[in-house]
Each structure stands twice: as C-alpha cells, then as structure tokens.
Design a protein around this nucleic acid. Structure first.
Length: 334
DNA sequence: AAACCGGTCAACCGCTAGCTC
DNA sequence: TGAGCTAGCGGTTGACCGGTT
C-alpha cells in the first residue's frame, strides 16, 4: 500500500508568503537541505503545504536565482528555445541559469507571446502532431528517469563501440577540444551550467517530447502551430545584427548564420538530419547549433544518432558535443 | 481623488510519471 | 501486482500595481 497523504489541506495557509515564512523556510532548507517536502512544513513549523514550500523555494528563495529583468540575450534565448521546444518551460529554464520555469512562462505570456502573435502571418513550421504518439497532447508529470537512464546506458555502450572505430582525425579533434575547454570560456549561449545538470531532452519521456497540448495544437484540429515564428517575426524580435533566419521550402525554420554549425557525420536514418536540417554536404549535414532548423514533422522516425560522429567545426569543444548529443537524444525520443 | 483598466507575476490547481509499500 | 503517494510539470487564477480617464 501507499504512504500517508502528503498533507492535510485543512488548516493550511494559502496565498502570499510573508517575510517571516520565507525566513523560516530558507533557514530550514539551509540547515537540512532540499527535499522531503512532505515533512518539511511540519518540521519547519510552517502552516503550508509541502508543495507550496517547494514552489516558494524554487521560484523565489533559492540563492542561485537571478533577480531583475530578463536581458536581451536571455529574451533571444527564450524565443529560440521556445521555437524549438514549445511550452516546455522547465527545459527552457534549464538553458537559462538563475531563471525559473515560472518566471520564463510569465515572461513569455506577458511579453513575448503577444509580440509573436503580432508578427505571425500563417503556418510557418509544419508540425503534424497527429503523427506523434498520443496525438500531440500532454500534461504535466515529471521527466522519465527510466528513459534517461536507459538512454545513458545506450549511449555509453555505443560510445564504447564507437571508441574503437573512431578515426584518428576525430580523436585528435576531440582531444584538442578538451584541452581548449580548460582554457577558454564557453561563449556558446546554449552551453550553460544549468543545462549540464539538466540535459535538454535526455530526461524526456516519449510523451513529454511532444510539446504541450495548448502550445502546439489547435482546437479545430488544424496543424496551425501557434509557436511558429516566421522569418520576419524572428528578425524583428532578434533585432539588428541578429542571425538571419531562413524558412525552408517545407516550412521549416532555420537560422542560417548563428553560432557554430555542427557537422553531423555518419549514418543518418530516415528522418535524420540530412535533408531536414540545414544545408547538406554530401553525406554530412550542417545542423544549426540551437537546432532551430529541425523539422519535427518527421520526428516519428527514429534516428540513430548514437552511431554518428559529432564534430564541431572551428575548434568547438567536447562540452558542445555533449550538449548536442543531449538535444539529439531529446529529438530521438519525440 | 476616485474609478477604471490592463499588465505583471506569485501562487494555486490539476495532471502525470515514477516510486514505495 | 497494484493502489496510493511524491515530485515535478504546465495552465490558470487573482492580487497587486501603475497608468489613464
């Protein structure tokens, strides 16, 4: 049988937190650490639900939170990530250190969604959610640890095998990248500390990778994608000097000259990068680093990325490779 | 000065996946 | 094995605040 109920709803305080409550909660977590949210209010002497305590800590009291306005860089990042991930606020927050999912969600709803709607002039990205498992609908629920664990195991095994047949060139590149990583700061926008602790997509279950129901589906069943960003809209949002976006003939959106592109080399299965992702170079495909160019309409097909050698041209380092592998895994599990 | 209005954001709600017993 | 609980997620609500009439 299960455990006792999380908390008695009767007699618990609701609404805004007082300064005193904040202090009690912060002091308790400082002494005892995070977790055990169920017993926390009782132990700390708070008349709050554990859920409420957790939310207050995560969204407001945590020491590593960045206070203040969202910067232009962060805004740009949110727009790009939202175009790729949809309303996956926790994933987006994982790429923005010090920002919470709630904060980003609020910022999007109050600042960016309206701007996006102003610019939207039709369907830009084809997202046929009916082809995705579950019909493209999803609600909350935590990320699938099972999927993540299984994937890590799978990647480890593949890497073991791959290590044996890896080319000398790639090995030299890899070694060089690791050396560089020690010396230089990572100026890649997507290579943030938090994104390492929460690998993008690696923890996603099959259903979670479908995008939120309200974000990606329309009530009348059309394929309209409210998250789609046209070239005009993105250019306006990103401002002068921003990378120029290109809209592919199939409607996919791609960022043609932002950041280092990534060459994905090797076997790419159906629905893989070739043809759908950026520019083709023989058996290689140039993939936009932020994955803006991915055509998720083909996501139903599996893509054995683990067999690929991922090389970042121009001396990209190992960290970027691992970031990419995380993102690829996310797409693999869509 | 007061009423109204719209924007922002903290907090709540309902749901799901995974875990525990 | 399955019922029930926990943790975490995204959507929604409503209090608060500043600007306008």
């Amino acid at each position: 049988m299960g455990r006792a109920p999380c908390c008695e709803k009767v007699g618990l305080k609701k609404g805004r937190w007082t300064k005193e409550e904040d202090e009690i909660l912060a002091r308790y977590i400082k002494e005892h650490g995070e977790g055990s949210w169920r017993s926390l209010p009782k132990n700390a002497g708070l008349l709050r639900c554990g859920k409420s305590c957790r939310l207050r800590w995560i969204n407001y009291l945590r020491a590593d939170l960045k206070r203040g306005n969202i910067s232009e860089e962060e805004e740009e990042m949110i727009i790009k990530l939202h175009a790729t991930l949809g309303n996956r606020w926790s994933l987006i927050a994982g790429h923005l250190p010090g920002r919470t999912d709630n904060e980003i969600k609020n910022y999007w709803n109050s600042h960016l969604s309206r701007r996006a709607a102003d610019f939207r002039d039709g369907v830009v990205v084809n997202v046929d959610l009916s082809k995705l498992p579950g019909g493209g609908k999803r609600r909350g629920g935590r990320a699938s640890r099972g999927v993540m664990t299984a994937a890590k195991e799978k990647v480890k095994e593949k890497e073991k095998e791959k290590g044996k047949r890896k080319s000398k060139v790639a090995e030299a590149e890899h070694q060089k990248d690791e050396e560089q990583q020690l010396k230089e700061d990572d100026d890649m926008a997507l290579s943030t500390p938090s994104s390492h602790s929460q690998p993008c997509g690696a923890a996603q279950s099959e259903e979670q990778a479908q995008g939120s129901a309200s974000g990606l589906t329309s009530d009348d069943g059309h394929d309209e994608d409210p998250l789609a960003l046209s070239e005009e809209m993105m250019s306006a949002l990103l401002g002068p000097g921003s990378p120029k976006l290109e809209v592919g003939p199939d409607g996919s959106c791609m960022d043609s000259d932002s950041g280092p592109s990534v060459v994905v080399d090797g076997e790419s299965g159906p629905g893989g990068p070739t043809g759908d992702v950026g520019q083709e170079l023989g058996d290689k495909a140039i993939m936009d680093w932020d994955l803006m160019g991915l055509d998720i309409s083909t996501a139903g097909d599996m893509w054995d990325y683990a067999d690929m050698d991922v090389v970042v041209p121009g001396g990209g380092h190992h960290q970027q490779q691992q970031e990419l592998m995380s993102d690829l895994f996310f797409l693999d599990n869509m």
